[in-house]
Computed example of a mutant assay.
Amino acid sequence: MMAIRIPRKRVRNRSYIVDLMLFLILAGMGAFMAMPLVFVISNAFKPLDEIFLFPPKFFVRYPTLDNFVQLYHLMSSFWVPYTRYIFNTVFIAVVGTAGHVILASMAAYPLAKRNFKGRNALFTIVVLSLMFSGHVTAIPNYMTMSWLGLLNSYWAVIIPALGSSLGLFLMKQFMEQMVPDTLLEAARIDGCSEFRIFWRIVMPIVKPAWLTLIIFSFQGLWGSGGTGKIYIYSEQLKTIDYALDQILAGGIVRTGPSMAASLLMISVPITIFIISQSNVIQTMSTSGMKD
Rank of each mutant, 00 (worst) to 15 (best):
K9E: 15
I240V: 14
P47F: 04
S15C: 05
Q246F: 02
D49S: 15
R12F: 10
M2Q: 13
D245C: 02
P81F: 04
G167W: 00
K46S: 02
A34L: 15
S193Y: 08
W210Q: 01
G167M: 02
V127E: 04
V40S: 02
T239C: 06
T286K: 15
Q219I: 04
S133I: 01
I215N: 09
D291S: 14
I125G: 13
H73Q: 08
S193L: 07
V136E: 12
F195Y: 12
R12I: 04
S276V: 02
T239Q: 11
R200G: 00
G149T: 10
S164L: 09
Q246P: 01
A93L: 04
T255E: 11
L148C: 12
N13F: 08
W79T: 13
G30I: 02
N279L: 05
T227K: 09
R196T: 10
S234C: 10
V18R: 13
P204T: 06
L211E: 06
I17V: 13
L264I: 14
S42Q: 07
K46R: 07
F169D: 07
A108S: 13
D181K: 09
F123H: 14
G149W: 08
I270S: 09
K229E: 14
S262H: 03
V202G: 03
V60N: 06
Q246H: 10
G99C: 12
L122A: 14
P55V: 06
P7Y: 08
G225A: 09
L71N: 01
M33I: 05
F78Y: 14
I102S: 07
M143S: 13
E50Q: 12
V38N: 07
F123V: 10
K229M: 12
M265I: 15
R196A: 08
L48I: 13
G167P: 04
S258E: 06
I125Y: 08
V94S: 12
D245H: 04
G118T: 12
P208I: 00
V253K: 13
T212F: 07
A112S: 15
L183F: 00
S165A: 12
V206M: 10
S105D: 09
P269E: 01
R114D: 01
A243K: 03
Q282D: 06
L264N: 01
I252W: 07
P257S: 06
S153Q: 03
L248V: 08
A249M: 11
S15N: 11
L211H: 07
I51L: 13
S164G: 15
A108Y: 03
R10L: 05
F32W: 12
I6M: 13
L26G: 01
